[in-house]
């Protein structure tokens, strides 16, 4: 649901999305050391495959974004992992779009990076259960921010989209709940089994 297809957004919104995406990608690339490429790719592949698992929520099912978890684990490299994931989804399954790649990247990756930067410290210092709760709340906030970003991109593109954008925001609530809970459990698991996995911005 977070993948806006080609043909919906207006030109200014598309261009602004690309500008933001290029800036974020440039910064993230500068931050990534050469020898970290294979390791980052392994994690990007895991996030991609885990997000393909359909998680049942009520009568429907959702696919996780995992941006909050990525932010906590790989910090700014989240931008690159999400970018590769979006490109692969567009190429392999036709999800999302080519011209909307910029907006989609900003919508999904930016909340993850921010949450990672804010919460990696507290998650590192506290107990597994508490870390899970903090991470879960952070991941839920990420999903809400992504939904807000998608709704904003639609609303800025055309005033006609505003009612749909509001309804769209409501459809993010089930994903928010699932994402928060699953990320919370995953983080408390990692905290017990491999605490240094949650290094965040400082790998």
């Amino acid at each position: 649901m977070a993948h806006i297809p080609d043909g919906v957004l207006s030109l200014p919104v598309t261009v602004a999305g690309w500008a933001g995406a290029v800036a974020m990608t440039g910064l993230a690339l500068r931050h990534m050391k050469e020898e970290a490429i294979p390791g980052t790719a392994v994690l990007a592949a895991v996030f991609f495959t885990v997000s393909l698992v359909a998680v049942p929520v009520g009568p429907s099912s959702v696919h996780l974004l995992l941006s909050g978890l990525m932010g906590l684990m790989i910090g700014p490299a989240t931008v690159l992992a999400v970018l590769v994931g979006l490109a692969l989804q567009a190429l392999m399954f036709g999800f999302g779009g080519f011209t909307t790649l910029g907006v989609n990247l900003v919508d999904i990756a930016l909340p993850g990076v921010v949450v990672g930067a804010l919460l990696a410290g507290p998650v590192r210092r506290t107990s597994p259960t508490r870390a899970g709760v903090i991470a879960g709340l952070g991941a839920g906030a990420c999903v809400l921010a992504t939904g807000g970003g998608v709704a904003l991109a639609l609303a800025l593109s055309s005033p006609d989209y505003v009612p749909s954008a509001k309804v769209l925001l409501v459809t993010y609530l089930p994903l928010m709940a699932a994402e928060g809970l699953i990320t919370g459990f995953a983080v408390s698991f990692l905290k017990r089994v491999k605490p240094d996995a949650l290094a965040g911005a400082s790998p």
Partner: peptide
């Protein structure tokens, strides 16, 4: 269910981190 999925994701990530180390 959600806890099981969380543990699944966590376990795959642990394995992936070990793999990433070896690949690097």
């Amino acid at each position: 269910s959600f806890r099981s999925y969380g543990n699944l994701a966590g376990m795959v990530l642990v394995r992936a981190l070990e793999k990433a180390q070896r690949v690097e």
